[in-house]
Design a protein around this nucleic acid. Structure first.
Length: 571
RNA sequence: GCGGGAGUAGCUCAGUGGUAGAGCUUCAGCCUUCCAAGCUGAAUGUCGCGGGUUCGAAUCCCGUCUCCCGCUCCA
């Protein structure tokens, strides 16, 4: 979905496109940097859907992606993978705080999708699946894009199947000003037709071959007629298409030559479909019911970008909900489309429940004409990332496509026998598929805020960075801090309190700084409660609990603190 | 893959041919009775990598790698 990344770069219709082109095989001309620079500002002649572009104009002013990236790195939440070797594009590692956060997101999903429900089971299927699975699912055929590049000045890349091939020939340019045709060094061009070629290259000759005011002639190189593709933007010839398969593959078996080439799953869903019948039978499930799964998926994204938004290795939280096609529903039973609707809303509510501002979420219903032939509806839940509205989760009504495909390719009967109607049929599937890393990023962006704090007596201002995470998502739930680090009795009491808390929740102890600094440290990673032990605590056996969001404090008996924290965390 | 930008301390960067620096962070000590205070001290660098020019290279040249941005792609 690139609807949002509108090419807001180019000034609209600045330079008229002079339709210049570089001749094939003149390396010198390709280095015309000045021309390239000018060209880069030319408007693309394929504006992406302008209406959508308008609708998606909204941007966030409260947080930038760079801010989040930098916080994540500084605090060891998430940082580039393989960093000590210079990094590996499209991979990110989660550090101590990030690992907790991600676990919490996954746990929250699992609780609401599996644990709290009576109609969904969890599964955990393999990353490596039989190669036929991807033939059946359509990934082998459809997950491969033929791409080609323009040799013209725009250097743009196109989907080969989006551009028609046309007849073309190679032309030589000759200078005929002085009567006798003199071939111009290196000036050979591919063009669809002589007339067109003349239009295309007029400007180019003059500018780049020093032929201003000269008369030139095009000679078709004999036997060069062929078919080729040309850039709609700059008229340049396109390279032959190269195939980009978006699935990663590996060799299964110890000896590479004789081993089987298998794919790493590009989605977790197919594992669920092929385990469907066994899981259903073992769990003794009737329709409707769902199978949920979390796990890593891999895609050879041509351009992984935007931090953890698009990476080559990523994690998914998917659920396949098998339900009855409408014609088999009895009175009062939800139809497939009603289930689709149910899951759309239910999934959006989940994000709101865990703290995302409702105004930062929206549905994007895929237009009917863009749906796959089997799909009866697809809705994206989009989140207003700092980079704009982008897909966070997709909810798809997949009809009976996947199970039917696997029936056909595997030869197994995956139909469901419905005792109510005494018929066999293939269930419909509703699939809410969420990106775990995208969810983590969304929660981070939505929780992030900066405040200016004024200190009471001196009126000194300082900046406070807070992650206002939902308690369930906060990586660390409570920090125990001694007010004075040079008082062994305070330190001892605080350490003991931290140890008590650690038996029940993820708590930490910290005394390496003045109290204000310790608070800020915890604010930055979203710790909801800080518990401070002061000198009075030794007398009255009470401690101060400081709330992250309000910075308010309250006094609680030390012996009640574990209960207090547990109670507040589950509230 | 193409084009552009960038690689110097954990972070942000300065350093354009002559002994590698600053601020912040981190750590230790002192101090400190609640919101990044102060003082003292310390740690941390194959200047992305390889080659060349030079008496001498972070600096100039060539090559190379990686990251970032744009484009193509993106359940």
């Amino acid at each position: 979905m690139n609807r949002t990344a509108v090419n807001d770069g180019g000034p609209a219709a600045s330079t008229p496109n002079p339709a210049a082109n570089f001749p094939v095989g003149t390396a010198g001309a390709r280095r015309q940097n000045t021309a390239s620079l000018r060209w880069r500002q030319a408007p693309a002649s394929f504006p992406k859907d302008p209406t959508l572009a308008m609708a998606d104009k909204s941007q966030r002013s409260d947080v930038t992606l760079d801010t989040i990236v930098s916080l994540c790195k500084r605090r060891g939440i998430i940082f580039p993978g393989s960093e000590i070797y210079g990094g590996l594009q499209g991979t990110f590692d989660y550090g101590p705080i990030g690992a907790e956060l991600k676990r919490n997101v996954k746990d929250a999903w699992w609780r609401s999708m599996v644990q709290e429900r009576f109609d969904i089971e969890g599964v955990d299927t393999c990353v490596l699946l039989h190669p036929s699975v991807w033939k059946a699912s359509g990934h082998v055929e459809n997950f491969t894009d033929p791409l080609c590049d323009s040799l013209g000045p725009s250097r743009k890349r196109y989907r080969a199947d989006h551009i028609e091939e046309t007849e073309c020939s190679l032309y030589r340019i000759a200078d005929v000003t002085d009567g006798e045709p003199k071939p111009v060094e290196g000036a050979e061009i591919w063009a669809p037709a002589k007339k067109k070629a003349k239009e295309f290259y007029q400007t180019w000759w003059e500018k780049h071959l020093g032929l201003e005011g000269r008369r030139v002639k095009l000679e078709e190189v004999e036997g060069s007629a062929t078919t080729g593709r040309f850039s709609p933007d700059d008229g340049g010839r396109l390279t032959d298409p190269r195939m980009f398969n978006l699935m990663l593959s590996t060799a299964l078996g110890p000896v590479e030559d004789s081993s089987a080439r298998v794919f790493l799953r590009p989605e977790t869903a197919q594992g669920i479909f092929i385990a469907y019948e066994t899981a259903r039978a073992a769990a003794r499930r009737k329709l409707p019911f769902g199978l949920a799964q979390q796990g890593k998926s891999f895609r050879n994204e041509i351009t992984p970008r935007n931090f953890i938004f698009r990476t080559r290795e990523f994690e998914q939280m998917e659920m396949e909900f098998f339900c009855k096609p409408e014609e088999f529903c009895r009175n009062g039973e939800r139809t497939d489309m009603e289930w689709f609707d149910y899951w759309r809303n239910s999934r959006l509510d989940w994000y709101v429940r865990y703290g995302i501002d409702r105004d930062h979420l929206k549905f994007y219903d895929h237009p009917k004409e863009k749906l796959s032939h089997y799909s009866r509806g697809t809705t994206d839940i989009e989140y207003l990332y700092p980079i704009g509205w982008q897909e966070l989760e997709g909810i798809a009504h997949r009809g009976n496509y996947d199970l039917s495909q696997h029936m056909e390719h595997s030869g197994r009967d995956l139909r469901y026998f419905d005792p109510q109607v005494e018929q066999h049929y293939v269930p419909y599937v509703i699939e809410p598929a969420a990106g775990t890393d995208r969810a983590v990023l969304a929660f981070l962006c939505d929780a992030y805020r900066e405040e200016v704090v004024t200190r009471g007596d001196e009126g000194k201002e300082s900046r406070r960075v807070v992650l206002g995470l939902h308690n369930d998502l906060a990586p660390i739930k409570a920090a125990v801090l001694p007010l004075l680090q040079n008082r062994p009795d305070l330190v001892e009491m605080a350490r003991k309190l931290a140890a008590d808390l650690k038996r029940h929740t993820n708590a930490v102890y910290d005394d390496t700084g003045a109290i204000g600094k310790l608070y800020r440290r915890q604010d930055e990673i979203g710790t909801p409660y800080c518990i401070t032990v002061d000198v009075d605590s030794l007398e009255d056996q009470a401690v101060t609990v400081r709330h992250r969001d309000t910075m308010e404090q309250e006094r609680i008996g030390a012996d009640r603190i574990v209960g207090w924290v547990r109670e507040h965390l589950s509230a």
